[in-house]
Amino acid sequence: MIKTFQGKSIIVGTPKDFEINKMIIKELRNVGFDSVFEISFKYQKFKYKNLWQHAKSFCKKNFGNRPHYKQLLRFEQIEPDLIQQLNELPDVDYVLLIRPDVYSPSYIDVLKKKSKKCVAYQWDGLKRFPAVNDVIQKFDRFFFFDPADLEGNGVLPVTNFSPISYRPEELFDSERITDVYFSGSYFPKRAAVLGKILSQLFKLGKSIKYRLNAWKLRENKKYNLTTTREFITFEENMKNSYNADVVIDLVFTGHSGLSFRIFEAIRFDKKVITTNQAILKYDFYDANNIFVWSKKSDIQDLKRFLDAPVNPISDFLKTKYGFENWIKYVLDEGEYISINLPEN
């Protein structure tokens, strides 16, 4: 069977956090791409050239609606080398940028000339990264995952996706088995909510594994939670989720888009405890599978949820939110199921 992208080529740029770029490249090769060229990068240490540049950055950040202006300055520092690397690549069929706000407009102009179709996906909200507005019109198709960001600009809706290239035998690990798993970055409010949820689960006799990631040691003494500086890869996180019965998902302040944990749970028929109220509006929501935690939640509600059997997700929904359908929809190639977002 000939795959849609067999014989096709793509340039892809993604964040390198937790080696998520490696997962995306694996997914692209799995759906048939013969040639995958990566332009992801890691920032180098940055030092302001002078007091004027520092002051300008301060003003842009605090008064110019550019909270990540320093990010662009850091990119400018490495841009000449990145453009030289880009010019050495052959022309391709597609370009896919995830988090296009980390690239400068001038770099994107050069990048566009390398492909027949250039698309981008912003998987963080506009409130956090408003600078992305400067580059939306440079792309043939531009996507957001938060319903609040879809007004105007000709942008399109899309969710995150389920990785489909990982087989159960790759993911199963008897030493990782647990009832409940959580992984996420540390923020004081997030740690407090996590503590409340875990304390209820502990009372119900559930085994728990959690990771609160932070560069510095942090602690929530009330719930005896501590952070770790030992960051693990996206693939390791997925293995941990796969070997848990229940995955906890705590929405990031500032957007209501759904995290990867949700789509992994869809693929592997896992239960989810989430603070993201927006999930109630999605077509895969099932009260047996998804518990929306709020201030009103109590231990009996949680117990009823955990005791109820999982309702297997339909093959249609697993296909819809799987990577193969996702990339066909994003690139507008082949037959696909459109991925819409609920009304804000």
Rank of each mutant, 00 (worst) to 15 (best):
F37K: 12
T227S: 15
F139D: 02
V135S: 04
E19A: 14
T159W: 04
M23H: 04
Y210I: 04
M1F: 11
E335A: 03
F316T: 05
E235R: 11
R29L: 07
E175N: 13
N21R: 07
F5A: 07
W123Q: 05
V95G: 10
K328W: 00
L96M: 12
T159R: 02
V180M: 08
G154K: 06
Q300A: 10
N288C: 11
Y166V: 00
I20Q: 13
F46N: 05
T4E: 14
E324F: 01
K117S: 14
D179Q: 06
G254L: 05
L341I: 01
L212C: 08
F46Q: 05
F263A: 13
F268Q: 14
Y223Q: 09
Y282E: 12
Y321R: 02
K296E: 15
V246K: 03
R176K: 15
D332S: 06
D140W: 04
Y321N: 02
I11G: 07
Q300M: 08
L51R: 14
P309C: 08
K209N: 14
L73D: 09
R66H: 06
A278D: 14
K8R: 15
W293F: 15
E264F: 11
V135Y: 03
K26P: 00
F63N: 01
Q77E: 14
R218S: 14
R66V: 00
Y285M: 08
Y321L: 02
Y210M: 10
F268A: 13
N213C: 00
E170L: 02
N87C: 12
D146H: 02
F234A: 15
V251A: 15
Q137M: 05
G205N: 13
F172A: 12
K295T: 11
D140T: 03
F129D: 05
F144C: 01
I164P: 00
E333P: 00
K116E: 15
V193S: 12
V272C: 10
D307L: 08
F142R: 02
E27S: 07
K222F: 11
A131L: 13
K196A: 09
V135M: 03
I177F: 07
A265L: 11
F323Q: 02
N160Q: 13
I337L: 00
P157M: 01
M238I: 14
E169F: 01
G195L: 03
E236M: 09
L171A: 04
Y103H: 09
F284N: 06
F5K: 08
G205D: 11
K281V: 02
